[in-house]
């Protein structure tokens, strides 16, 4: 058995400790950047929905400006965005490489995407529900909390799932700018040294992770939908 593994993926076995470390870093990146990006996305998405024309906190200025900023970041190719953000990462995290260097680009690269996902999720809320709540004497913040957010939990989960999956892809791209995780592992030990087994195994891990996130997301969305 062991012989077989060594035979098909000799380089992975050779660098096994770095390999495990890389997986751990990738997971940590997704966990931390993911959490922050999801929260930011949810906040911005909610602001976009409630400030849009005709909604409970209608505000043309905020709606337009925030919308433009979100679109700007979404339009930027991630790899270039990550390069541009290196000084910011230096400033905030003290470094732009390694695990610590991955957080800022990942958050800024994903939060706008997440914001649009959340905006779409909250837009599914029927206008009638909001009016019914207003007619009962609920104020705007109660409506955001108890109607917009609470009633779109299944859609929010679906948006989160899509966001996390796109983030898994971005963690790999970050290998180019020298961040940690499987991306840099692939570049340093796989691509640059023609060790294709390392690329294949890393790919398998990332695909598995994607399937896992999708599965959990689907399960939770189904659990919360009535």
């Amino acid at each position: 058995m062991m012989d077989f593994i060594i035979q098909i993926m000799p380089n992975v076995v050779d660098r096994f400790d770095v390999f495990v470390e890389s997986i751990y870093e990738t997971l940590l990146m997704i966990l931390i950047s993911g959490s922050i990006a999801l929260i930011l996305g949810l906040i911005f998405g909610t602001i976009l929905v409630v400030t849009r024309p005709g909604d409970i906190l209608e505000n043309k200025f905020i709606y337009t400006v925030l919308g433009k900023i979100v679109d700007l970041f979404r339009a930027a190719p991630f790899i270039i965005l990550a390069m541009i953000l290196t000084p910011l990462s230096q400033l905030i995290m003290g470094t732009s490489i390694g695990l610590k260097g991955a957080y800022i680009p990942l958050i800024i690269g994903t939060a706008p995407f997440c914001a649009r996902q959340m905006e779409q999720a909250l837009s599914e809320i029927d206008r009638g529900l909001v009016e019914a709540s207003q007619s009962m004497g609920f104020g705007p913040f109660e409506i955001i909390w108890k109607v917009y957010l609470r009633e779109s939990i299944p859609s929010i989960i679906r948006g989160f799932t899509i966001t996390l999956i796109s983030m898994i892809g971005l963690t790999a791209i970050l290998g180019v700018t020298g961040s940690g995780g499987l991306g840099v592992f692939c570049i340093n030990y796989g691509y640059n040294q023609y060790n294709y087994d390392i690329l294949w195994v890393s790919l398998a891990i990332l695909v598995l992770l994607t399937i896992l996130v999708q599965g959990i997301g689907n399960f939770l969305a189904r659990k919360t939908r009535h």
């Binding site: 029927d126 009638g128 529900l129 009016e131 609470r150 009633e151 299944p154 919360t224 939908r225 009535h226």
Partner: peptide, 9 residues
């Protein structure tokens, strides 16, 4: 209302 506007969740 005509369409009830109940909270689905």
């Amino acid at each position: 209302f005509q369409h009830f506007n109940l909270m689905k969740s």
